[in-house]
Simulated assay, not measured.
Amino acid sequence: MPCPCGRGIRLSDCCGRFLDGGAAASTPEDLMRSRYTAFVLGDAPYLLRTWHSSARPDSLELDSGTRWTGLEVLRTTGGGFLHTEGTVEFRAHYVDNGRGGVVQEHVMQENSRFVREDGTWLYLDAAGGR
């Protein structure tokens, strides 16, 4: 199965290794892509594990009516070997059932902020989502 994050490689060789705990994301972009993949696959526990404790909700219920259909990474800042912060601006495409069961296409654009804590990248928040 190809990875939903759009890199064009198998899930097991891409984001799957992060979701199953076999590896940790080495950059904010890797973490953002793996979180998108977790949304696609409905893996709420992974999303909670990778959310910074200062902003993490107590629980997370994913909308089963939302189908994620594509990811575009627009820009990244920071997130290098010596950095403790980074951002990833992206567009996530999705469809859902609107009124009367009509399928509606949507695009969510966000500039996500990430922090590295004890060597692990974590999602902090959205700095300017649309």
Rank of each mutant, 00 (worst) to 15 (best):
P2T: 14
I9M: 06
R10W: 02
S12L: 12
C14P: 03
G16S: 08
L19M: 11
D20P: 03
D20M: 09
S26P: 02
L31H: 04
R33T: 01
S34C: 13
R35S: 08
A38M: 13
F39L: 08
L41S: 08
L41V: 11
A44V: 07
A44I: 12
P45S: 07
L48R: 10
W51D: 02
S53K: 06
S54Q: 13
S54E: 15
A55D: 09
A55N: 11
P57Q: 10
D58H: 05
D58R: 09
S59R: 15
G65L: 02
T66D: 00
R67C: 01
W68T: 11
G70E: 03
L71M: 14
E72G: 03
V73T: 03
T76E: 06
G78A: 11
G78L: 03
G80F: 06
G80P: 06
F81H: 13
F81G: 12
H83K: 08
T84R: 12
T84S: 13
T84G: 13
G86Y: 04
G86A: 08
V88M: 07
E89G: 09
H93I: 02
N97V: 02
G98D: 12
R99F: 10
G101T: 00
G101R: 01
Q104T: 15
M108N: 01
M108V: 06
R113G: 13
R116G: 04
Y123R: 04
Y123Q: 05
L124A: 12
D125L: 03
A127E: 11
G129V: 00
